[in-house]
Structure formats: structure tokens, C-alpha cells
Design a protein around this nucleic acid. Structure first.
Length: 419
RNA sequence: GUGGAUGUAGUUCAAUGGCAGAGCACCGGAUUGUGGUUCCGGCUGUUGGGGGUUCGAGUCCCCUCAUCCACCCCA
């Protein structure tokens, strides 16, 4: 019996692991600079949480959730996204009852039963950020600026930011009425998917990739023309604040976010050169979600991005994340007695925080030298018969080839000085 | 969920239906205890899995699994 990794999942292997840690650390550091604090929610929640928040008509809920019953028959789901659990926690901890703003971020795995392809997995890692407690456009800009600064500071250049406003429920309703009125006479010309979208989620008609549908979508009324006074002013202010933050963006009235809870500002960061899975991150306001989930009405805005796509984009742009740890010292021992002498020495160095590698079992001196070279360690320590009798070790600089003999009890203090 | 391409050594790839190979990597050697370059030698395979056609299948057919691409969806 041979066991296989589940479809659409992957192991983060040692030679990749440091890249993940690096990306996560950079996200945490930036969050600290913006005053955001980390929250970790469970991997699974009641299925109903996602059904109510994301919208039961969404594909994520309808087709992609990993659902299961526990031993008492309660229905749970592996979380397909991060916002709903954070909102649940926000309400459960009564943060909605205070007047203060709440700034949270998270990283962790999400689960969707999708057909895997490059940049799309069944277990995938997201970084995300949620802001609660103000509808001020300042915070729209802050959240978007955070995302933009994170991605650009990593070295991404071939990305662009698209923003839109989907308005409040009132504007949205009027817009959908207008949209349906526009599409009604074209119904027979649409593809099968779009005929279904017309009934289920008319906004999705706008980003169909079938060319003939795209032509029709170009003529369709724009969401932006159906914003009421308040929503339009808000959107203009958001753009103004983004300019003040020196963030470049383009307005794309056809951005449609997949989850039902979004209102007002919606945005995406697109990578120019990844194939079909080119949305690096996306987000928007959800001013009505907290209330809808049973909390006190609380405006909020957030985003989420995928680490796998981020990694692909960084690789595509040739950004090097190779910060693989290189040992400071590679230790070589010849013979059993020397191996024993090596033991206390390398542990002293390691306990001082030096990275020390060795493989004293290797067959020959030459082989150990080779290994020292492959490790790229700056120095190598050599102990053999001669050194044992003189209670010294040889310290060799692998770059210059120079070597010197050092008394065994002085080795650690000497290395502390030069490293 | 729909359509298509692919699957051979650790890895990148070869092999008209006729003995499964090469580069890289790895391991060893080139006078005793000194790496990188060079030279010599060595190891590695249920050809993803199962079935079928055939004297004979990596190659043709069917099923299955996986990866990739597009749709879809979205991060």
C-alpha cells in the first residue's frame, strides 16, 4: 500500500519552507507598522456561518465547501475563506459593542473543493486583513495601501491595482434591475452559463470570457452610474485618499467580487503574466455583514491574498527569496577520538547561536572537506590525531584557504569574535 | 463540474512495436590529513497504477490516478 498526498494539496518542503516563513514574516512586520494585530480562528466552523455570510448562491458555498458531520451530527465545514470566521469572533467577543476600531490580520490555510491547476489548490494559504469600526474613506485607502505596499515591497513590479464601487444595497438593487432590463432582450444571444447567471447573479454577466458575451457586456450599464449620492461621494473620497497615499490605481467598473457580502469599495491586485489565475489578492468593504451576522451594525473593510500565487508571481519576476540558511562553521573530525572531541565543541558553538553542521561519519577526510565546501560554510574546523595530542583545532577560512591552529579552549571565544 | 495535453532514474529529457539510455545531481578514486576546476570509475528504474491487443508494449487500445492548460470559479 502506497499513500499519496490528497489531490490539490502539497507539502511545503524544507527547501521551500524558508520562503514561506519570509513572506509571512514580512506580512506580520508590515501589519505591526500599520497597527494590526494577529488573530487565529479555527480551521473549521459551522457550515451555516459561511452559508449566511458568503451567500448560499455563491459557488464557494454551493460546490466548493468541504463539509462534514461530527459525531453528534452537527454540520461543520473546513473554512473556505477567512473573513466570516473573523467576523464571528469579532461579534462573539463583543468588540462590536465598543466604540473603538479593531484592526486584525491573519495567515493560514483555506479549503475549497476546486479542480486544481497552477495557482489553485484545494488547501491554499491566505494572508488577510480586516478593519472594523469606521466607514471613513481614509480606511479604505489605508487597507488598499497596505496590500499594495506589501506586494511592491516584496519586489513585484508587473502588478496593477483595480478598484470599483458596488454601492450600498439600494444602489445595487437599482443597478441589478437596470442590468436585467438591459440583458432581457439579449437573453437568447448569451452562452449557457450566462443565461444561468441572469437568474442567479446578474453581476457575473459582466466578466464572462466568451467573446460574444463580452461584446454585449461592453454595452451594459455601468455600476458607477447607479451609485447614489452618498456612495459616489465615498468612492471619490477613497480615490482622493489613495492619491494622497501615492498609490496608483485604475477604476474598473466591471470588478465583481465572488462573495455576497461586499458593499461600496471593491478592489483587486492583478499580476500581468500568470495565466488565468492572475488575481493576487482582492477585497472590499462589507459594511452590513456584522449586522447580518447578528452583531451591532459595524462598517468594515478587508482583503485576502493567496501565498501560492504570490510565490508564482515572485518567481515569474525573478525575485530571489533564496535566504536558505548557510552554516557558519562546518566541522570535520578524523577518527573516533576526534569525533568525541568534536561533540562538546560544536554544542558550545550551537548554544551560542552559531550554525554548525558536520557529518563525521563520512568515509574519508576528503569527503568531509567536500561536504564542507558544498555547505558553503565560511569556516571549517578540523580535528584529527595531531590536534588531539596538542589540544588544538585547525580553523580554515574556506574562501581564502588560509588556516590557523587554535587552542581547543579558545575556539568558541575566537569564533565569537570573527563571526 | 466541462474540454484538451502530459506522465520514463533523485532531476531535466531521449528511445520506428524489437536488449530502457544521456546530461546534471549523488557516491568513490587520481600516493598517507585539505574543498572548488579537470580526468577516471560507480549507483540509481515495478517506464504513475491496473487490464487488453501482440511472438514481443515505454510505444497501440480501455480503465484509473496524478500533474499541467483552458473553461468555470477565485486567492
Amino acid at each position: 500500500m502506497k499513500y499519496n498526498i490528497p489531490r490539490g494539496t502539497y507539502d511545503i518542503l524544507p527547501n521551500q519552507s524558508h520562503k514561506w516563513q519570509y513572506l509571512i514574516r514580512r506580512f506580520q512586520d508590515l501589519a505591526a507598522a500599520y497597527g494590526y494585530q494577529e488573530i487565529s480562528t479555527p480551521i473549521f466552523e459551522q457550515s451555516a456561518l459561511f452559508e449566511r455570510s458568503s451567500g448560499s448562491s455563491s459557488d464557494v458555498v454551493q460546490k466548493e465547501m468541504y463539509r462534514f458531520l461530527d459525531r453528534k451530527g452537527r454540520e461543520f465545514a473546513l473554512r473556505p475563506e477567512g473573513t466570516a470566521p473573523v467576523v464571528r469572533s469579532f461579534i462573539e467577543n463583543s468588540w462590536d459593542k465598543t466604540q473603538s476600531r479593531t484592526k486584525l490580520f491573519y495567515t493560514g490555510p483555506m479549503f475549497r473543493y476546486d479542480r486544481p491547476q497552477a495557482g489553485r489548490y484545494r488547501q491554499f494559504w491566505q494572508y488577510g486583513l480586516e478593519f472594523f469600526g469606521s466607514h471613513h474613506p481614509f480606511y479604505d485607502a489605508e487597507v488598499i495601501a497596505f496590500l499594495w505596499n506589501y506586494l511592491t515591497s516584496l519586489g513585484l513590479k508587473k502588478i496593477h491595482l483595480e478598484i470599483n464601487s458596488v454601492g450600498c444595497p439600494n444602489c445595487l438593487h437599482e443597478y441589478e434591475v437596470a442590468l436585467k432590463a438591459f440583458y432581457q432582450p439579449h437573453l437568447s444571444e448569451l452562452c449557457g452559463d450566462c443565461q444561468n447567471r441572469f437568474e442567479v447573479n446578474p453581476k457575473r454577466l459582466l466578466d464572462c470570457k466568451v467573446p460574444s458575451c463580452g461584446e454585449i457586456a461592453k454595452q451594459a450599464p455601468s455600476q458607477l452610474d447607479y451609485l447614489d449620492e452618498e456612495c459616489r461621494t465615498h468612492f471619490e473620497q477613497v480615490q482622493h485618499y489613495l492619491q494622497l497615499a501615492n498609490i496608483e490605481f485604475m477604476v474598473n467598473p466591471r470588478i465583481v467580487r465572488g462573495l455576497d457580502y461586499y458593499s461600496h469599495t471593491a478592489f483587486e491586485v492583478i499580476f500581468d503574466g500568470l495565466g488565468a489565475q492572475n488575481t493576487l489578492a482582492g477585497g472590499g468593504r462589507y459594511n452590513y455583514l456584522v449586522e447580518q451576522m447578528g452583531g451591532k451594525p459595524t462598517p468594515a473593510i478587508g482583503f485576502a491574498g493567496g501565498f501560492e500565487r504570490l510565490l508564482l508571481a515572485l518567481e515569474e519576476e525573478g525575485v530571489s527569496l533564496d535566504v536558505d540558511p548557510i552554516p557558519d562553521v562546518y566541522a570535520i573530525a578524523m577518527g573516533e577520538e576526534a569525533q568525541k572531541a568534536l561533540m562538546p565543541l560544536i554544542f558550545v558553538l550551537r548554544n551560542q547561536g552559531k550554525k554548525v553542521d558536520c557529518d563525521p561519519e563520512k568515509s574519508s577526510f576528503k569527503a568531509q572537506m567536500k561536504a564542507a565546501n558544498n555547505s558553503q560554510a565560511r569556516f571549517c574546523l578540523i580535528i584529527g590525531e595531531d590536534e588531539l595530542s596538542s589540544k588544538s583545532v585547525i580553523l580554515k577560512d574556506m574562501e581564502s584557504g588560509e588556516q590557523q591552529s587554535i587552542a581547543m579552549d579558545k575556539v568558541s571565544s575566537h569564533l565569537l569574535q570573527i563571526l
